[in-house]
Design a protein around this nucleic acid. Sequence first.
RNA 1: GGAGGGGUGGCUGAGCGGUUGAAAGCAGCAGACUUGAAAUCUGCCGUGGGGCUUGUCCUCACCAGGAGUUCGAAUCUCCUCCCCUCCGCCA
Length: 482
Amino acid sequence: MIDLRQLRENPDRFKAGAKAKNIHVDIDRLLAFDENRRSLMTRAEGLRAEQKRLEKESGPQIGKLAGAIKKATGDEAAKLQAELDELKTKPSHLKSEIAAIEPQIAALEPELNALLLQIPLPPDADVPVGAGSEANVEIKRWAPRGFDFTKSFEANRGFKPKTHQELVKDLKLADFERGVKLAGTRSYILTGMGMRLHMAVLRYATDFMTDKHGFTPISVPVLVREEAMVGTGFFPAGREQAYHIAETQRRNPDAADEKGGVGGASHDLYLTGTGEVGLMGVHMNEILDEAQLPLRYVTVSTCFRREAGAAGKDTAGLYRIHQFDKVEQVVICKADEAESRAWHKKMIGYVEELLQSLEIPHRLLQCCTGDLGPKNADMIDVESWMPGRGELDKDGRPQGAFGETHSASRLYDYQCRRLNMRYRTRSGEKTETVFCHSLNNTVLASPRFIIPFLENHQQADGSIRIPAPLRPYLNGADSIRA
RNA sequence: GGAGGGGUGGCUGAGCGGUUGAAAGCAGCAGACUUGAAAUCUGCCGUGGGGCUUGUCCUCACCAGGAGUUCGAAUCUCCUCCCCUCCGCCA
């Protein structure tokens, strides 16, 4: 969420930001609602102040009179009663005036809030302007020694590569047919060494962040309340991407007579598409101590994505699937642009180091304005080299292509404002509560990561070489063979 | 699933119809004492919104959330959410 006061003061900045991100929101409408609400509030508050003043004046008298009436009789009592009634009527006309204004304010709020949640965070000035992912800018490339991006896989390695689908099939690492039988399209089953490799890379990535970089590992719920989805900024914009557990709609025959067949729990739940939701939700509605910051969390969680709107895209293999596991890193730091930027670089650096340790060729992309979601000011994607992906050559074999495996977002206070996550800071005698800044980045998502892993480490004999750092997680195995 | 008990400031915890935005304690901040620190003492110390005369200013809201009763609600009533205890079931 953006700061309404900032929007009021500088609407053009937010209009330009939304335009650059290609997000349509009616900012003028929001401003009109805001203006309207404020003037109504000023009126209601003035009236209420007056009412309060009268109450304070007449309250003690009312108490006294009421007591006197109890003791008095006949005419005396009637006289006192009349006096009491008059006192009581004084504030009542103010009350009815206020009662007329309040519903007007209440009527404005739902739409005002809905609009406010839709205003995207403007991209930073140094983010290149562009319409979509094709305008992203490559900023860095890395490959292990002996691998040259300008040459084909065959020229580099001396044999034609198999795609991950072929490797997975030949080495019996996954079973797509049965996955689909069980759970429909975009479903899979990892088998044998496939499952072990999956668990090994996840564990390696978690240990890497924890042991090498001091992140605190925590578990997170993947089934969360709507509040957490809105707070982290995945709702309302990404509602159709999330699985929805409609508990309130559950039909329970035993409860049918009382509640018309609705017998579920009291609120709906949503499956999270990333551990970021759980990690950021941990301190929702909290005021943190400045000394606690920065918080550095890492989790591994199962992620669920409906992939709505992606029909027909990447339907085969392990690339675009409904359920996967991901090691995610999150940093919550002070509201300081320089510090936010520094963490962003570090968090990207961890991923580069991780990919280098596993000898995966990759590149960094500066995402352009049109590719940013509503919540980020800046985003860097990491794409890993996938020899079995991309355009087909004249023999009908893929020529290799980069595929997104990581995404590092810098959000300023956009997310923490929604989550109401603040910290207390002191400057001299004054203490102030400030919304934190937050950042997040993938550490490793599998099985997608298994694609570049298998395809890059395949050998001429069809086996897969395991890089040394991963071997301890595979009981010392140095290769996967049929 | 059944039966009870609760949700009050950063934390603990009083208040149960009338200057209560809220006692007390802890934590925090400032000052005094001290060579320094600790201890002690004194003072300050919730959050959010709105206004303009931008001020050690005015004002409104907030005691889980919502609706109601009342001249007046943290306090009474109803609904919702959440937590806890016991029993049942269960990996």
